[in-house]
Each structure stands twice: as structure tokens, then as C-alpha cells.
């Protein structure tokens, strides 16, 4: 968990090299690399491994980033990361890059959990109300979880909004237990 702090430093220094105009494209690249690593766990394990030589790792990594616009930046970033044996926090660094890029545009990534599927309009309304609460724009990702019964839960790195029926029922039970009758 301490790695978050280290990851944030790497992320900020990578972002430092990206211009404002290229940010959106760069984030797409980050997401792409993330997806590749997610899908190819063996590849990621190789990158993390302390036995594989740096040279070999670089070759693997190059195959991933070869077609990307910011190839140079990615490769030099990788060259800094690898000798320090920090391959294991690559995923976290990518997460931090996304988070900090959003933050620089005054936005936050939010995981929005709903009890069942809503239409676009309703979700947009919910998103608007969350934006009002936290004072940031949100970039959300919807997931469905029937167990919350109704309402929504919005979770991000640094806040949690619980407007679910489940949460309220839990609160009701807790209050009834602690209240003196």
C-alpha cells in the first residue's frame, strides 16, 4: 500500500512530460496498456519478474507500445522504472496517471453502483447530483449490484456516497440498536 505513494510520484513525473493538448490521447494509451496487461497476465508476470533481464523486458514492452504516439515517453519511462525493480507497481502507476490526469481537468473517476439498469437520462441525473455534492466533474463507470436493492453507491479513491436502500436499512438497524427504548 505504501506503493501508492511511490506510484503517484512516477505518475506525476510522466504527466509532466505530456502537453495539455495530448492529454486525452495519452490517457487512451494508458487505458490500452492497462487492458493489454490485464488480458495477458503472463506478460505482466514477466515484466514483474526479477529474474528476466532488463533487456528482454524492454523488448516485450516495446511490442506493446510500438504503435503508440508517445512511444518515446513510454520507453524512457520504462527504462527508468526497470533498473529500480519497480515493475510490480506498473499497474498502480497507470492508475495514478489516469487519476491525476483527470484531476488536472478537475474531474474524478467514479464507480457508480446501481441496483438495476437505468436509462441514460436517469444515470446522467444521478451523475449531475454527485457532481454537485463533491464539486468535481465525474467520469463514471456503471456496474449493477442487485444486493443494494435501490438507490446508488458512488465510490472513488477519496470519497464514498452511499444513497442506497441497503445502506439506509443498515443505518436504521444500527440506530434502533443503540437508541435507548
Amino acid at each position: 500500500m505504501k506503493d501508492i505513494i511511490v506510484a503517484k510520484r512516477y505518475a506525476l513525473s510522466v504527466l509532466y512530460n505530456i502537453g495539455e493538448d495530448n492529454l486525452a490521447a495519452f490517457i487512451d494509451e494508458v487505458k490500452y496498456i492497462k487492458a493489454v496487461l490485464d488480458q495477458n497476465t503472463e506478460l505482466y508476470n514477466l515484466l514483474k519478474s526479477k529474474i528476466v533481464s532488463i533487456h528482454d523486458k524492454l523488448e516485450f514492452f516495446e511490442t506493446i507500445v510500438n504503435d503508440l504516439e508517445h512511444k518515446e515517453i513510454w520507453l524512457s519511462f520504462f527504462l527508468v522504472l526497470m533498473p529500480k525493480q519497480r515493475g510490480d507497481i506498473l499497474q498502480q502507476i497507470l492508475d495514478e496517471i489516469i487519476k491525476n490526469a483527470y484531476l488536472s481537468k478537475n474531474a474524478k473517476a467514479v464507480k457508480l453502483t446501481l441496483a438495476y439498469d437505468h436509462d441514460e437520462d436517469t444515470i446522467l441525473k444521478i451523475a449531475k447530483s454527485i457532481e454537485k455534492q463533491i464539486g468535481y466533474k465525474i467520469i463514471y463507470q456503471v456496474s449493477i449490484d442487485k444486493s443494494i436493492i435501490g438507490g446508488f453507491i458512488a465510490k472513488s479513491e477519496d470519497f464514498c456516497i452511499d444513497a442506497s436502500v441497503l445502506g439506509n436499512l443498515n443505518k436504521f438497524v444500527n440506530q434502533s440498536i443503540t437508541d435507548k427504548v
Binding site: 479513491e157 477519496d158 470519497f159 464514498c160 444513497a163 443505518k171
Partner: peptide, 10 residues
């Protein structure tokens, strides 16, 4: 609605 600022234990 419960709005909370959260953090993670390091």
C-alpha cells in the same frame, strides 16, 4: 445520503 471523504490505510 451519506457523503464521506475516504482514504486508504497504508
Amino acid at each position: 445520503i451519506d457523503v464521506n471523504e475516504t482514504g486508504k490505510i497504508v
